[in-house]
Each structure stands twice: as structure tokens, then as C-alpha cells.
């Protein structure tokens, strides 16, 4: 007899989770209706959550509550917890501007939505421009590595080798993508070839780590099925 006591809601969640996992895994045997149902269910839940959470966590508490004055409490003696801040009304401006996006559904007023799209594009472009420099400049600086490294007065062979591999990889891969003029010299062709091979090594590492990530997902799901779902099933049938 199982010693664990489940709350009804927790039990239902675990059982549904296990059923959903098995339904999705059933695709490995063959395409089937159960798989399709749960695939659509997952997409629907993700889309619904994506809509509800921003409203619940951001638009309502951060914008609408102060705007509508719901954070001002009236005490029994008729006084208020605080004075309504009229600057909260300024929230109406960005809210209204953002709502213009929905004119994308109107043929006549679709141009209004383009104002919002243009604003978003401009803002994203500016952010990306700034972000690019913040991210890349330190990486550029760190790519200037000494090929011979001394540590406590002695030659650090590992660091020296590591830095040499880094610099050779950086230069050869950059040279591979240098298409401004035709490479004629044999040495230049070899450098580009080396860059290509080193990129293959990198792609191999990416592929290996992708397999690792997918397997980790499988292990986690199996662990859930064997431990949590299995225990919940045993509880249900009274074992």
C-alpha cells in the first residue's frame, strides 16, 4: 500500500502529465490520433499561458491597477490610504499607441498599425546596435591572446598550446569567409581548408551537445514516468 497521500489536484496533474508524455512518445511507434490530440493541446496551453501571464503579472498589477486607482484603499473612517497620483493617467498614452497594432485587421486603417510596427522596428534596431557593441567588443579584446604564456616564471605549456589553437582557429575560419578576392596561393587555400575542417569540428561538438540535451530530456521524462507517475498509479489502484 502506498504511504504517500496525494491532494486530488496534484494526483490529477501527475496522471495527466504521464498520459501526455506517453501520448507524445507514442509517435515513436507510429503517427496516431492520441499524439495529435496532445500535440494540439500543448500548443493551445502554451499560447493561452502566453496571453494570460503578461496580463496577470504585468498589465493588470503594473499598469491598470495604478491607472484605475485600485491601489488606493478607502478606510472605514472615510479616509484613503494615499492620494491618487494623476501622472498615472500618462499610462493611457503608451497603452493607446500599442493598441493601434490591432488596426492591422482593418483594411481602411491598417496604416495606423504601421506606426507601431515602425516604432518597434526602430527601437529594436537601436537596441541591437547598442547590444552588439556591448557584447562583441569584450570578445574582440579577449581574442588578443599571448601565444607564449609564463606562469610563476615558468612556461605554461597547456595555456600556450590552448591560446595557439585559439588564434589559429580564429584566423583560419575568418580567412575561409574572406571572399573579396580569389585565393590563388596554395598556402592561402590551405589556410581556408583548415578553417573549414575546424568548423566541422565545431559542428560536431554542436551536434554532440544537441544529442546530449535531447537525451537529458528523455531521461527526465523517464524518471518522471517511473517514479512520480508510477507511484501515483500505484496509489490509484491501491497498491
Amino acid at each position: 500500500m502506498s504511504t504517500v497521500n496525494y491532494e486530488p489536484w496534484t494526483l490529477a496533474t501527475i496522471l495527466t502529465g504521464g498520459l501526455g508524455t506517453l501520448a507524445i512518445f507514442s509517435f515513436l511507434v507510429r503517427e496516431n490520433r492520441l499524439y495529435r490530440i496532445f500535440e494540439h493541446l500543448y500548443i493551445g496551453i502554451a499560447a493561452g499561458l502566453g496571453l494570460v501571464v503578461p496580463i496577470k503579472n504585468y498589465i493588470w498589477p503594473q499598469i491598470l491597477v495604478p491607472l484605475l486607482g485600485y491601489d488606493v484603499v478607502q478606510y472605514p473612517d472615510g479616509t484613503f490610504s494615499k492620494v491618487y497620483d494623476p501622472t498615472n493617467l500618462l499610462y493611457i498614452l503608451p497603452l493607446s499607441f500599442g493598441c493601434l497594432y490591432y488596426f492591422v485587421y482593418s483594411r481602411r486603417y491598417a496604416w495606423l498599425s504601421k506606426l507601431v510596427i515602425g516604432f518597434s522596428l526602430g527601437m529594436s534596431g537601436g537596441l541591437a546596435f547598442k547590444g552588439f557593441f556591448n557584447e562583441i567588443i569584450p570578445q574582440l579584446a579577449s581574442s588578443f591572446k599571448p601565444l607564449v604564456v609564463y606562469h610563476d616564471g615558468a612556461l605554461d605549456l597547456f595555456r600556450s598550446f590552448s591560446n595557439t589553437v585559439f588564434v589559429v582557429t580564429l584566423l583560419s575560419v575568418m580567412y575561409y569567409f574572406f571572399f573579396s578576392f580569389r585565393r590563388r596561393a596554395r598556402f592561402a587555400e590551405m589556410g581556408a581548408g583548415l578553417g573549414r575542417w575546424l568548423m566541422m569540428v565545431c559542428f560536431g561538438a554542436f551536434f554532440g551537445s544537441t544529442v546530449m540535451a535531447r537525451m537529458a530530456l528523455l531521461v527526465e521524462r523517464l524518471q518522471f514516468l517511473l517514479n512520480d507517475w508510477g507511484a501515483a498509479l500505484r496509489y490509484c489502484i491501491g497498491l
Binding site: 565545431c202 554542436f206 551537445s209 544537441t210 546530449m212 540535451a213 537529458a216
Partner: peptide, 8 residues
């Protein structure tokens, strides 16, 4: 903390 895919 990253997933294995993002490690490289």
C-alpha cells in the same frame, strides 16, 4: 546555467 545544446 545552460542546456547542453548551448554549451559550445
Amino acid at each position: 546555467g545552460c542546456t547542453s545544446i548551448a554549451t559550445p
